[in-house]
């Protein structure tokens, strides 16, 4: 492609770290756009990106989170398109970004399918994944879409409850609109201006959702629900204590739903929960929420 510079946006910092790693490996310049609120709550990943040689550009306008980080990355890209490749981090943005990201992320579903067949000899009854823009969920779901026996649930951020500005549950509290080159479900006011969002997890704190998720919802193939901050925080602690795995706060939303679903299933049913990120990055933030000084 002849490009010598990579840019990306990041919410939780995972995609920023991944892009910075690739750039370091290939000897490319790298700049990551990140909202100032997210820089504050995901400082470990910010340090990682810098360690990997990337520049972290603080976005302190608008929502100061993922949405405005994407806006700024797009503005950079339109300006520096001759030298720069934009590595968009979710299944959103103008075509063909949603397809590119889905196809790369689909490794998750391919591996999950292979591994569960090896381990259990059959496909799972449920797939559960959290949804910000929706890339980890799309990556898991994509290779199971044709398997009618596999139910799928996408879990959005319910934040402090479904009131304007207090959550990021686009299906529960949004409507159809156009943002960042994509038509999908958005959190917007009556005039079409984009609303503020809230979630305890930076990666889910976003006003729009990938268009293919909107399609899967309308087609009735995937069910979408949400978990609140409080539910996600208890799932975060539950998995840490019971399994010895500290999950990302994003993935904790999926775990919260898994706990609810498991209660109404018999013991022979099988659920795959996508642990899309590790929780090391969230430990400081969770301690702060709990009022613990480290």
């Amino acid at each position: 492609m002849g490009k010598k510079r990579l840019i990306a946006e990041t919410g939780a910092g995972q995609h920023g770290v991944a892009t910075a790693t690739g750039a370091a490996l290939c000897g490319l310049e790298c700049e990551i756009y990140m909202g100032s609120d997210d820089i504050a709550r995901q400082s470990l990943n910010v340090f990682r990106m810098k360690l990997l040689g990337a520049e972290v550009a603080e976005v302190s306008i608008g929502s100061r989170t993922l949405k405005d980080a994407i806006n700024e990355a797009m503005r950079d890209w339109t300006t520096n398109v001759a030298t720069t490749h934009y590595v968009l981090g979710t299944v959103f943005g103008p075509h063909p970004f949603p397809l590119i990201v889905r196809d790369f992320q689909s490794v998750i579903g391919k591996e999950a399918r292979k591994q569960i067949l090896e381990a259990e000899g059959r496909l799972p009854d449920y797939l559960i994944a959290c949804i910000g823009g929706g890339s980890n969920a799309m990556g898991l779901f994509h290779n199971f879409i044709a398997d009618e026996g596999v139910s799928m649930i996408g879990v959005e951020a319910g934040g402090r409850g479904i009131l304007p500005g207090e959550h990021a549950a686009r299906f529960a509290g949004g409507s159809i609109g156009i943002l960042q080159g994509t038509k999908s479900f958005l959190l917007q006011d009556d005039d079409g201006n984009i609303l503020g969002t809230h979630s305890v997890s930076a990666g889910l704190d976003y006003a729009a959702v990938g268009p293919e998720h909107a399609f899967l919802r309308d087609a009735g193939r995937v069910e979408y629900t949400y978990a609140t901050d409080e539910e996600a925080l208890s799932a975060f602690e539950l998995l840490s204590k019971t399994e010895g795995i500290i999950p990302a706060l994003e993935s904790s939303h999926a775990l919260a739903e898994a706990v609810k679903v498991a209660r109404r299933l018999s013991k022979d049913k099988m659920i795959i929960v996508n642990l899309s990120g590790r929780g090391d990055k969230d430990v400081q933030h969770v301690a702060k929420i709990k009022g613990i000084e480290l």
Binding site: G177, I178, L179, L186, Q188, D190, D191, G192, N193, I194
Partner: peptide, 9 residues
């Protein structure tokens, strides 16, 4: 202006 405002209107 941007398309979403027209779409919503």
């Amino acid at each position: 202006t941007y398309y979403n405002l027209i779409f919503r209107y």
